[in-house]
Deep mutational scan, measured.
Amino acid sequence: RGFLEKAAVKKMAKAIMADPNKADEVYKKWADKGYTLTQMSNFLKSKTAGKYDRVYNGYVIHLD
Rank of each mutant, 00 (worst) to 15 (best):
E25N: 07
Y56D: 02
L63P: 00
P20L: 06
A18F: 08
A23K: 07
K33W: 15
V55G: 00
K22W: 05
K47Q: 09
Y27D: 00
G2W: 11
F3C: 15
A49D: 13
G2T: 12
T36H: 03
T38Y: 09
E25C: 15
D19S: 06
K28G: 08
G2R: 12
A15E: 14
Q39S: 04
D24E: 11
A23N: 02
K14R: 14
V26N: 04
K10H: 06
Y52D: 00
F43R: 02
T48G: 06
K10W: 06
K10P: 01
L44W: 01
F43T: 03
N57G: 07
D19M: 05
L44K: 00
A13D: 01
V55F: 02
M12F: 04
Y59P: 01
K28D: 06
K47T: 14
I16R: 00
D32G: 08
E5P: 06
K14H: 09
M17V: 06
K22G: 06
D53K: 04
V9G: 01
L44S: 00
K10C: 10
T38N: 11
L4P: 10
L37N: 04
V26Y: 08
Y27F: 07
M17W: 04
S41Q: 13
K14S: 09
M40T: 01
Q39P: 01
K51P: 05
A7M: 13
M12T: 04
D24T: 12
K47I: 06
M12P: 00
F3W: 14
Y35W: 05
W30Q: 00
P20Q: 09
S46Q: 06
K51W: 09
P20Y: 08
N57K: 10
K33L: 14
A8H: 12
M12R: 04
D24C: 15
G2A: 14
G34V: 02
A23M: 07
M40V: 11
G50H: 09
S41K: 15
N21D: 11
I16H: 00
A23W: 02
D32R: 08
N42M: 10
E25H: 07
Y52I: 02
G58V: 01
E5R: 06
G50D: 07
V55N: 01
N42W: 15
Y59H: 01
L44T: 00
R1N: 12
R54G: 13
H62G: 02
S41H: 13
F3V: 10
D53G: 04
K33N: 10
K14Y: 07
D19K: 04
V55W: 02
A31M: 09
T38F: 10
K47D: 15
D24F: 11
R1A: 13
K14L: 10
M12G: 08
S46R: 05
A23P: 01
W30H: 00
D64I: 15
Y27S: 01
E25L: 09
Y27A: 00
V60H: 10
K11D: 08
V9A: 04
S41W: 13
A8D: 07
A18G: 07
V60L: 10
K11C: 14
M12D: 15
V60W: 07
N42G: 11
N21P: 05
F43Q: 03
V9N: 02
G34P: 08
N57F: 14
V60F: 06
H62T: 03
E5Q: 08
V55M: 02
K28P: 04
S46K: 05
D24R: 09
A7K: 14
K22C: 15
F3G: 13
A18T: 09
D19A: 06
D53T: 06
Y35K: 00
G34Y: 02
R1F: 10
R54A: 15
K14P: 01
L63W: 05
K51V: 07
L4M: 12
K45N: 10
K47W: 06
R1Q: 11
Y52R: 01
K33S: 14
R54E: 15
A23Q: 05
Y59C: 02
W30V: 00
A8L: 13
K51A: 08
T36V: 02
A49G: 09
N57Q: 14
L4Y: 12
Y35N: 00
E5K: 06
S46Y: 08
K10G: 03
A7Y: 12
S41G: 10
K14I: 08
N57A: 13
Y56E: 02
W30R: 00
N21T: 14
R1Y: 06
N42T: 08
D64W: 09
T36P: 01
N21H: 10
Y59A: 00
K45T: 12
K28W: 04
V55E: 02
G34S: 04
K6H: 11
G50T: 06
D32L: 11
Y35G: 02
T36Q: 03
N21W: 10
K22A: 08
S46A: 07
A49I: 11
A31R: 08
L4H: 12
K29A: 14
K22H: 06
T36M: 02
D24A: 13
K33A: 14
K28C: 09
I16A: 06
R54M: 15
A18D: 11
T48L: 08
L63Q: 04
K22L: 14
S41M: 10
N21V: 08
T48S: 10
M17N: 05
L37E: 06
G2E: 12
L44C: 03
K10D: 03
N42H: 13
M17E: 05
G50C: 08
K14W: 08
A49Q: 12
Y27Q: 00
A8S: 10
N42D: 15
E25A: 11
G50M: 04
E5F: 05
R54Q: 15
V9C: 06
L37A: 09
A23G: 06
R1M: 11
N57D: 15
S46G: 08
N57W: 15
E5N: 07
F43N: 02
M17F: 05
M17G: 02
P20N: 06
A31C: 15
L37T: 09
Y59L: 02
A18W: 06
A31Y: 09
M40Q: 00
A49Y: 08
F3K: 14
F43P: 02
S41P: 02
N57P: 02
V26Q: 05
E5A: 08
K29M: 15
S46I: 06
K11G: 07
Y27W: 02
D53P: 01
K14A: 12
D64L: 15
Y59M: 02
K6C: 14
A7H: 13
M12L: 08
M12S: 05
T48H: 11
A13L: 03
G58E: 05
G34L: 04
G50K: 05
V60T: 06
A13T: 02
A15F: 06
A49R: 12
I16V: 11
L44R: 00
H62N: 02
G58S: 03
Y35F: 06
M12E: 14
K29R: 12
H62C: 05
K22I: 14
G58T: 01
K33G: 05
L44I: 03
N57I: 10
M12I: 04
E25I: 06
